[in-house]
Simulated assay, not measured.
Amino acid sequence: MPRTARKKSESGIYHIIMRGINRQTIFEDEEDCAQFLEVLQRYKEKSGYEVYAYCLMGNHVHLLMKIGIEPLEQVMRRLCGSYVYWYNNKYQRVGNLFQDRFKSEPVEDDQYFQIVQRYIHQNPVKEGLGKRVDEYKWSSFHEYIDQENIVNVKFLLEMMRDEKQK
């Protein structure tokens, strides 16, 4: 049975979820998380995407991003391929790390964007990894509070400012 076609976003913004194969852990330690974020940062300029939120959980990843120069599939091939190559080398393993293809959901309006962004940051609390979102280290929440690094924080802040002015 053929796969259903991926829904294309008019805005170019997607909520992306990548899960470990058989729900296995894809981030064994802090070095793994740091490496994934380094890969995310490294391909930002080359692929031309914007990251608005991320959360690295033990066996899955949430990303809220806008595609730029390259199509979504190529961006994800770069990100996943680079991380899996590094991970397999580190753990002396071969084969797939991520389950099936990544999931992507188009984000077409400001209200839904804010819902998804909040959901991503609250995911560790929902999973019992802390009582507050600021207790979890591997989420972009800290970039909104402390210092912007990978995430385009201004996008959400301008969106909220524009809503307030309406």
Rank of each mutant, 00 (worst) to 15 (best):
V39F: 08
L40S: 08
Q41F: 14
K44H: 14
E45S: 14
S47H: 02
A53I: 11
Y54K: 10
G58D: 12
N59D: 11
V61F: 07
H62P: 04
L63M: 14
M65F: 07
I67K: 01
I69A: 05
I69C: 07
V75R: 01
M76R: 04
M76K: 00
R77I: 04
R77M: 01
R78M: 09
R78Q: 11
L79R: 07
L79A: 03
C80R: 11
C80D: 10
G81N: 15
Y83M: 02
V84Y: 06
Y87C: 02
Y87T: 07
Y91M: 10
Q92H: 11
Q92T: 12
V94Q: 13
F98C: 00
Q99V: 04
D100M: 07
D100I: 13
D100Y: 12
D100C: 01
R101W: 01
P106H: 03
P106C: 13
E108N: 14
E108S: 13
D109Q: 15
D109S: 05
D109C: 03
D109E: 14
D110E: 15
D110S: 07
Q111M: 12
Q111A: 13
Q114K: 15
Q114D: 15
Q114W: 05
V116P: 03
R118Q: 09
Q122G: 05
K126Q: 11
L129N: 08
G130I: 02
G130L: 04
V133D: 03
